[in-house]
Amino acid sequence: MAKHGAAAALLIASLLVAAALAAGADVRRPLNARFAVNRGATRVSVEKKQDVAVVPKLSCSKVHGVQAGETCFAVAQAAGLTQDVFLGFNPNINCEKVFVGQWVCLAATSA
């Protein structure tokens, strides 16, 4: 029975989205929203978070080309950075796939 309730809630939510799209509404969920479905499957809500921190845009002022055998941790440690600071300077880096010659940021200033 519980599976039918969840399936019904999903079907209703899908129909609501389809109807909104047909009416030309912008139904994209904001990135800082939380989607919630209660277990009784009687309501669906989207709650917008109010406490979103604004991160200043950074401009890299010192770079390093990754050498053979280096890892994110080794590069950060050699530069005197914590792992969190290093990743803050390099938000799009995949530390599991760092390659030789890849440029990483070691120092940054807010733009």
Rank of each mutant, 00 (worst) to 15 (best):
R43D: 08
L16Y: 07
C105S: 08
N92G: 15
F99Y: 13
G88V: 01
S61F: 03
K57M: 09
N38G: 03
V44K: 00
A25W: 14
Q102N: 05
E96S: 13
K57W: 08
L31F: 05
F86M: 01
L81D: 02
P91N: 00
A76F: 15
A79I: 01
V98C: 02
A18C: 09
V27F: 11
V66E: 00
V27L: 04
E96G: 10
G40K: 07
V63G: 04
A19G: 12
A41C: 14
K57P: 03
N94L: 07
G80S: 02
Q102M: 15
A68F: 03
G24Q: 09
A25Q: 14
E70Q: 06
N90T: 02
G80I: 05
V100A: 03
T42R: 13
A2I: 09
A2H: 10
C105M: 00
F35T: 13
E70F: 00
A8H: 07
L16K: 12
L31G: 11
L58H: 11
N38A: 03
G88Y: 11
D51C: 03
S110I: 04
R39V: 10
A6Q: 08
A22E: 15
V85Q: 15
A8L: 05
R28M: 11
V100W: 07
N94Y: 04
T71K: 00
S110Y: 07
V100G: 01
L16M: 12
L31M: 10
G80T: 01
F99H: 06
S14G: 11
L16G: 03
A6T: 10
Q67R: 14
I93N: 01
V55S: 09
A78Q: 15
L15D: 14
V100N: 10
A18D: 07
C60D: 09
V37P: 00
I93T: 01
V37E: 05
A9N: 08
V46P: 02
I12E: 12
L81R: 01
V63E: 07
